[in-house]
């Protein structure tokens, strides 16, 4: 009897907490998203209705930011994958006794506040930094091109900030590959490229899936990079939700946008997992 109850007793406190402070808020958010402004009421006063048109209004008003969120997040994820894969491969197979040191180095930038690092990028890419004048002198960028306050800076900042989230799962799954399978492939006359495509990549797929998800999900909801490194024309959905909450006090629209963002992410993620064919995620 006690044995059957043990797992449930272990789960109870944690799940009660998660239910109260994660599930209930999401349900509450769903309710908020269909509320209507009280006619003649003060700012921030809403009554519970079932106005699903909130979703349509919110989407139509912000479809640009919506598209931008997903576009930036996808580009940043692809870039991070391109940068992180060879890095993870190098750590797993080519680092010898320095493996642990290099792993610590991947996580180490995390220990400086990510806001400080993002602001550091803003200053490095800025007019007073050394990079822009150097590139101008070399003729790589023209006199009136700037690097900060551009979509380039936002995407670069996102790529940078989420890079460790990509590198670690990739490393974990590449490190598990038995190097003898790669040798075997070579023995069977596969060249380097074929070995990578037919052996290394399929075996590291769980890491690719986990890494892209851990990068894409926070990137799609991010607003800090856009706020620090961007301009008014690079605003993402996160920026809109934030300002709806704090500046305009328009809770229903903010809630509807949050819900749409979450639903869109879940749909994309489900499709992606289906396509990538991995189910061992957690």
């Amino acid at each position: 009897m006690g044995k059957i109850r043990t797992p449930y007793l272990l789960l109870l406190p944690g799940f009660a907490f998660l239910f109260t402070f994660f599930i209930l808020p999401i349900i509450n958010l769903a309710q908020t998203s269909t509320q209507t402004k009280i006619a003649g009421g003060d700012t921030g006063q809403y009554e519970q209705t079932l106005r699903f048109a909130n979703y349509v209004d919110a989407f139509v008003d912000n479809k640009e930011q919506f598209g931008r969120s997903f576009l930036y997040a996808i580009i940043a994820t692809v870039l991070a994958l391109a940068i992180a894969y060879p890095l993870a491969y190098a750590i797993a197979f080519k680092s010898g006794k320095y493996k642990n040191v290099l792993l610590v180095l991947v996580v180490a930038p995390f220990f400086t506040s990510f806001l400080l690092r993002t602001i550091a990028w803003k200053q490095i890419l800025g007019e007073e930094g050394f990079l822009v004048p150097t590139l101008r002198t070399l003729g790589i960028i023209s006199e009136n091109t700037t690097l900060t306050s551009t979509s380039f800076a936002v995407v670069m900042g996102m790529t940078y900030n989420f890079l460790p989230f990509m590198t670690l799962p990739l490393y974990a799954s590449i490190d598990r590959i038995d190097p003898r399978t790669l040798e075997a492939s070579g023995d069977l006359y596969a060249n380097g490229y074929t070995t990578f495509r037919k052996v290394t990549l399929p075996l590291s797929m769980p890491g690719v899936v986990a890494g892209t998800l851990l990068t894409f999900i926070p990137a799609a909801g991010d607003y800090v990079n856009a706020a620090i490194l961007g301009n008014p024309n690079t605003k993402m959905l996160g920026n809109v939700i934030e300002s709806r909450y704090f500046k305009i006090v328009d809770y229903p629209t903010a809630a509807a946008l949050s819900f749409t963002l979450m639903a869109a992410i879940l749909i994309l993620v489900t499709l992606y997992i289906r396509k990538a064919g991995t189910e061992e995620l957690v």
Partner: peptide, 22 residues
């Protein structure tokens, strides 16, 4: 397992905003 995965799949802004509403 799903309940553990969900908070990780929820964008921070949604989690923060929903908790504030509560």
């Amino acid at each position: 397992n799903l309940l553990i995965f969900l908070p990780m799949a929820t964008p921070e802004i949604v989690m923060g905003a929903s908790l504030l509403s509560l």
